[in-house]
Design a protein around this nucleic acid. Structure first.
Length: 289
DNA sequence: AGACTAACCTGAAAGC
DNA sequence: TGCTTTCAGGTTAGTC
């Protein structure tokens, strides 16, 4: 489940394989839910273009091209982006249980039915693949100057800016604080897992009405979000987000997500799971008020 | 406007 | 054993 840290790690790993390279060949699957731009258009327009940079806003990756177009990518739930040479494979996304598993790094990647985009580059070298089993990810090619409602709707990136004043933003809002954290137009990049983890750090119960948070709680909340996200990037992005806990050292830093019934790491009280805004929310009933 | 729900997608896991 | 149901979640669109 890629959230901001996984997307940022993917960005960093992919950057050297994309930036400065000229697209020589494009393969896609047939048109489907992942394509906001028809695959035939991608196959026609991408070859010949060089990639200027790879940027991230929230959970989106944006690659500006030399003709002013922009390639927009979103990993959705199960999306993976990685580069692969001919002999061995380096998985470059930490999502969906694919990345960091050593046995898979050498498995040799063969594009399958879920591999929706394959980019070859001039001069050879590693190719770049976009794979997404559940097709909740997105691929879009924006024309020069074309705006994207998806991008423009986004609020401040959860890591980069000082962010909105959460206290001001939440006044009068009856929705839960958890719902507001997941609202990408308020703060871009936080998903279900890190929202729960940040709420635990801030000691705020996810069901609390956002409009009732004090100034101090809002400050704590924003600080906790940043801390959780930064920490996850430092440790490789997989330890917190992978519910199986099988990947990425340290083994498991999750405090609450996916730990319903297990003892709180602070006070031993069993972690509870409730549904908030249609999403699962995990919290310690004693530590979080 | 804000809040809630359904829909998109598919594989794993639970239920029968 | 094998079939059916449920669940997971990021995001948008539609409804109230």
């Amino acid at each position: 489940m890629p959230e901001l840290p996984e997307v940022e790690i993917t960005r960093r790993r992919l950057e050297p394989f994309l930036v400065g390279r000229i697209v020589a060949g494009v393969e896609t699957t047939r048109d489907s839910y992942v394509f906001l731009t028809r695959p035939s258009v991608l196959r026609r327009r991408l070859p010949g273009r060089s990639i200027l940079s790879l940027e991230r806003t929230g959970k989106y990756l944006v690659a500006p091209l030399d003709n002013g177009e922009r390639l927009l990518l979103h990993l959705g739930m199960t999306g993976q982006l990685f580069a692969a040479g001919t002999a061995s494979v380096r998985l470059l996304s930490s999502t969906a249980g694919a990345a960091l598993a050593p046995d898979r790094q050498t498995a040799g990647f063969r594009p399958d039915a879920h591999t929706h985009l394959r980019l070859r580059f001039a001069g050879g070298g590693p190719e770049v693949f976009f794979r997404d089993v559940r097709k909740l990810g997105k691929i879009q090619l924006l024309r020069p100057g074309e705006s994207s409602p998806r991008l423009e709707r986004l609020g401040a990136d959860a890591l980069r800016s000082r962010g909105p004043d959460l206290f001001d933003v939440t006044r009068g809002r009856r929705a839960s604080v958890k719902t507001v954290l997941l609202d990408q137009s308020v703060l871009a990049g936080v998903g279900n897992i890190y929202a729960d983890e940040a709420l635990f750090l801030a000691r705020i119960r996810p069901t609390r009405r956002a409009g009732r948070l004090s100034r101090a709680e809002c400050r704590r909340m924003v600080a906790a979000v940043k801390r959780v996200l930064r920490r996850s990037i430092e440790t490789g992005g997989a330890s917190v987000s992978d519910p199986s806990g099988e990947e990425g050292p340290p083994l498991d830093e999750r405090r609450v997500y996916g730990r319903a019934g297990e003892p709180c790491r602070r006070c031993d009280t069993p972690i509870r799971r409730v549904v908030v805004g249609g999403r699962s929310a995990h919290f310690c009933p004693r530590c979080q008020r």
